[in-house]
Nucleic acid binder design. Sequence first.
DNA 1: CCGCAAATTTACAACGTTTTAAATTGGCGC
DNA 2: GCGCCAATTTAAAACGTTGTAAATTTGCGG
Lengths: 393, 393
Amino acid sequence: MQIRALVASHGKRFKFCAVQDCLQRGAPVWFRRSTPAIQRNAPVSRIEKPADSEPARNPSRAGKPTLKTIAEMTGLAITTVSRALGNAPQISENTRRRVHEVAAEIGYLPDRAAQRLKTGRTNVISVLLDPHEEILGFGTSIMHGLARALQATPYHLIVTPNFLDGSNVDAVNYIIRNGMADGLIFSRTEPFDPRVRLLLENGFPFVTHGRTEFSTPHAFVDYDNYAFAYEATRRLIVKGRRKVTIILPPKRLTFHQHMLHGFMTAVREAGIAYEIPDTLDLDSPADMIRDYVRRRSGEPDPPDGFACPGEVSALATITGMSDQGFTLGAEYDIVAKQTSLLLSQIQPKVETIYEDLKAAGEAMGQLLLQRIAGEPVEDLTILQSPQFGFPTP
Amino acid sequence: MQIRALVASHGKRFKFCAVQDCLQRGAPVWFRRSTPAIQRNAPVSRIEKPADSEPARNPSRAGKPTLKTIAEMTGLAITTVSRALGNAPQISENTRRRVHEVAAEIGYLPDRAAQRLKTGRTNVISVLLDPHEEILGFGTSIMHGLARALQATPYHLIVTPNFLDGSNVDAVNYIIRNGMADGLIFSRTEPFDPRVRLLLENGFPFVTHGRTEFSTPHAFVDYDNYAFAYEATRRLIVKGRRKVTIILPPKRLTFHQHMLHGFMTAVREAGIAYEIPDTLDLDSPADMIRDYVRRRSGEPDPPDGFACPGEVSALATITGMSDQGFTLGAEYDIVAKQTSLLLSQIQPKVETIYEDLKAAGEAMGQLLLQRIAGEPVEDLTILQSPQFGFPTP
DNA sequence: CCGCAAATTTACAACGTTTTAAATTGGCGC
DNA sequence: GCGCCAATTTAAAACGTTGTAAATTTGCGG
């Protein structure tokens, strides 16, 4: 057993000889500064464990290579290794390459916790999942896309579910306050969405799925629901339908207005009859939509053209109508928004207009990365056009 | 400006007077150990910045309260504060309460990165999302449940999507090797699932959705698919169907066998005719299932009872049958597994047996927490019974 | 008032990384 | 050989927390 280091204060029991000894072997000697307030220090002398007894490391990461490992292997300093891996400009090409080689060889990966602690950046993107999302895999489509966008980056995707206690705003506030992520993604925006307001006020990077009406610009990806509603309605009219209707999203959401506008524009251009159910919206349970359609189609002057901005509402409409004996494509038509493959696979007679949610997710991820990198938000807006390329029978 | 600290080696330009001075004021003097290989050290003397110039803190967490903040406010040591917040036994009730009060007042939350770095625990639960999950919100149901289970814990839920490059096993390996999480959750197990093998070998905590056939036990939550298939088939028989069929999950998955077993047991007990499509499984796209059903029902001696272990397959079956002019409930019957509200809302004539995925998610979360806490895995297995409480018309 | 044990509080180091500021090296002109 | 500049490498401190081991305070019997 060998004395490797020694700590001493300048108190009574100062062991001069030990210090001398350490100095000769190049071991560090520590003169401890006394506590400012009270002079408490009693003399200390500490002896390190012998070199062969490894300090008990945290078992969960035993043997995990760190910068220190590479430093020892290459004979460089930890700083240099860090620099080399970060491709810092002042590192010579030679050592840069060598460090990279060794790192790859031993499978080094930087410790996220340490990086996060040091830099304050979390390398985390958080998605606020809303329980009211269209059940047909909205969440997973967006996630697919996000995952793809973050694939080659150091970012991880963490899900902050809204479903539970606390409102959306609380979740956002929590994330801002505690620096739980570097950026945020969420959907179903309102014109003056309180989440957006909060994030804007705090300068926190985020991308929404859906627009707002704040004068301050922010990054968003949105689907052109005006175009969808206009086109869907127009197609119903072209098919010769006499009275059209649309199931709109809840009034408080921004895209309610967009859809309404598209629908009304097409209706007015054609001068056709229409009606808009007001006891019902896209968030209503499928059986409620089904029952409404069934009841309404049994009453006088029912609509015969349905614009359905969701697959579930389309299926519910079909069921309600067929309960009354109406045949899709003959006595009535549906043009629906399609976000998964399900609807067209199940019921090919429904005409669909596609919204690519996976692409939306990917775009949101990319925009968020750009936003975090500091690009001006004015450039970070995407309006997805409906794809009109589907065959019209 | 005041000299507060000084670093010196025992090289030529050793400034003895400066050291003396430091000693007298209680400032630390550092005898730097020379680099082992080459004796490089030249003497150094450093002067600290004046105390009034605040060190430039990371802007992203400016003002965020830390243990130090509380320590300064209460006049206690950082260690004591940490202890008090951790409710360590050796802290007096008095200071414990005071620290908790101050912490609550200033809204202190521990820095996850620092905790993680120090303790090696990540406080993260990772979910492996599989792209082949039933599209109808399997992922989100599980996530709901998990979120609820982790609600009052320090754990966060992070999604490691499988969808992209790399197999399941690679993702698991990555998580183990780099300590990205304290526990793992995934589904769709195979009898000798390589992910399970890997995790068992490394003693990494995990809970699967689905069983395996390893002799080493592990934590799982599974749905009793034997009971489902048996009960579904029995109901078809009770309804007077003459020939039953079932769309099974892919052969490599463990629950393929369970379902097959349940189905065959019911069939054999009743001595009824049956058939099992072998070009088709639950992962087949809906249109493929629909086309198969349509074709088969046009051929001689078609089945008139369908056990559908998924809502999509049920919808596809209905479409295929109605394309041939068959009426559900009259000429044929379906008993389907229901995991969302969609199917029964859209098509109430389908008889359903419920699988509560949200409850499964919550159970998996709880089991995983217990597993991490070190409870024996033998006790951490749950077999969910089908709920037979749904009205049979 | 002393000694001693128990109760409570404390300093220090460490986790693995990045940042700052400084030291070292090499080259070049004299 | 010296001084100087640029290129490269370096030590030390810091991020906020917890574990270890020690110091300090308190209480109590004499």
